[in-house]
Simulated assay, not measured.
Amino acid sequence: MSKSKKLDFSPNDFVVYPSHGVGKVVSIEVQEIAGMELELFVISFEKDKMTLRVPTNKAIEVGMRSLSSPDVVTQAMKTLKGKAKVKRAMWSRRAQEYEQKINSGDLIAIAEVVRDLHRADDQREQSYSERQLYEAALDRLTREVAAVSGDEETDAQKQINDVLISRAPPPAAA
């Protein structure tokens, strides 16, 4: 039995890399690095125009995983419907927590960030950094929901927006 567990991905499989979101395995190649042969997953993140090479024996360690199951996507959508939970901590501390959730690669944690930072049109303005974190989380969530369902990102985006809008309280009657 080998001492390091290996993830079994094939070319054209979608994967989630925690700090970059959804990518596609383009190939598995062997490269000689420092005199050692290393087997690597070559992952393309088309939207970011980026290619990442991850040693196959380190994929689990770095938190690379398969796409979420449809059940997890359903859970994430339920999470979006929930009431925003905003701690009274200073923004810098909250921002750090949001950043960690986004980079965890955990779809439910990412959905929590989207839920907590979403603003309806009639709510107070978001700061620049709040908006950046919200958009990063929304982008990750959208890409994974689209990849799991096989839909276009625009369809996934609409599905997520519909959920977010449905939970917003109706504007007060004039």
Rank of each mutant, 00 (worst) to 15 (best):
E39G: 06
K87Y: 08
K83V: 08
K78L: 12
E144W: 05
V26N: 02
P169V: 01
I33H: 05
E97D: 04
F45Q: 06
V42D: 10
S4R: 13
S104I: 01
K58E: 15
K24W: 02
Q123E: 15
F14R: 11
S129W: 07
A156G: 03
Q96N: 10
I160K: 02
K158H: 06
A146K: 09
Q157L: 15
R93C: 07
D116K: 03
G150F: 05
E29K: 13
V54H: 03
Y98W: 03
E61R: 14
A137R: 02
K158L: 14
F41A: 12
A174T: 14
I33D: 03
L164F: 05
D8I: 12
I110P: 00
V145G: 04
E153Q: 12
K24T: 15
L38H: 10
S27L: 05
D151T: 13
R167G: 02
E37F: 11
V163Y: 00
I110T: 02
Q96A: 15
S69A: 10
Y17N: 08
V86A: 03
L52Q: 07
Y128Q: 12
D106E: 11
M36I: 09
E37N: 13
R94Q: 06
T154V: 09
Q126R: 09
E61Q: 15
L138S: 12
K85C: 03
M1W: 06
S66A: 15
I43L: 08
E37I: 10
G35A: 09
D71C: 07
L38M: 14
E61W: 11
S127G: 11
K83T: 06
K6V: 10
S166W: 01
E46D: 12
K78P: 00
S2L: 11
T51G: 00
S2E: 08
P11H: 04
I102H: 01
Q31E: 14
P11A: 09
A76N: 01
F41G: 12
Y98Q: 00
R167T: 02
E152R: 14
E29D: 13
